[in-house]
Design a protein around this nucleic acid. Structure first.
Lengths: 140, 140
DNA sequence: TATTGTTATACTCTATAACTATA
DNA sequence: TATAGTTATAGAGTATAACAATA
């Protein structure tokens, strides 16, 4: 029972398609999905080292380097040396970064929020619970 | 209540991360997510024109062209002219493509199916219902 | 030697714009 | 002119391998 293989296929397909749709909803001049995700992580969890960001985002260090370089070029995060270990760099959200988070999240998610608003309460509650399960599945 | 904006953000994040995880589970020599998705679409819905594949996959024609070229190079689909309109091409799954679907889906989804198998029945049923809602959201 | 981070390179996935061929 | 599809090009997102700097 519970055909896990069939559910896995359907879930993979649904997630793949929703990702495509969400990527298309990127506002003009908005941050990309990965940039926004990394920025929020640094903002929520305080100053982080580059390796910590990579770990929390679930990506390899070179992938993090690229996203962090873009955020720094935009002035949204600042990069400082670690006082006790010269190899490490410490990333923190700047005031400009902090200001961008709210507006970018709003713009980025406006489309999805609108779609959610037309769902019934049942479906919305279903999604709220499903999000927790999806996050759990995403942990490798 | 039901803060649609907050749910949108959480859902976006969860879907983004699960996509990253699933992409990493690509088996050696396995088809990519987009290749497998397109192949299954053609297999399920019979011979399709290139534009139909793009529409069903929710991508633009150039994106479909690339995926279809890869599938054809692998011998998994065949390309024929439309008898009534020389501009169109008709894609069909070959016997080799048909054979690859089962094994590739199994290999691709083995990891996820295993993760699903350790969930409780409640969570599994939750996901089954959530998949339908996610697919609906993905329709632009 | 081991660890942290970056650079170099490559692949997937997708897009827009420009083109070809056919209608 | 309009449509179907391809080619050219670009950018996001990620990886592995090789490197530099520091521990």
């Amino acid at each position: 029972m519970t055909d896990n293989a069939a559910l896995a296929s359907e879930l993979r397909l649904a997630v793949h398609r929703l990702t495509r749709t969400l990527r298309n909803q990127r506002p003009v001049d908005g941050l990309s999905l990965s940039q926004l995700s990394a920025l929020v992580t640094i903002w929520r969890e305080g100053p982080l080292r580059a390796g910590d960001v990579a770990a929390r985002e679930g990506v390899k260090p070179p992938s993090a380097t690229r996203v962090l370089a873009a955020l720094e070029a935009l002035g949204l995060i600042s990069r400082g040396p670690d006082p006790t270990d010269g190899r490490q760099v410490t990333l923190a959200v700047t005031p400009a970064g902090s200001a961008r988070i709210d507006e970018d999240i709003k713009a980025r998610d406006a489309w999805l929020a609108q779609r959610l608003s037309v769902l019934g309460d049942d479906d919305r509650q279903l999604l709220e619970r499903a999000v927790a399960v999806l996050k759990q599945l995403a942990e490798q």
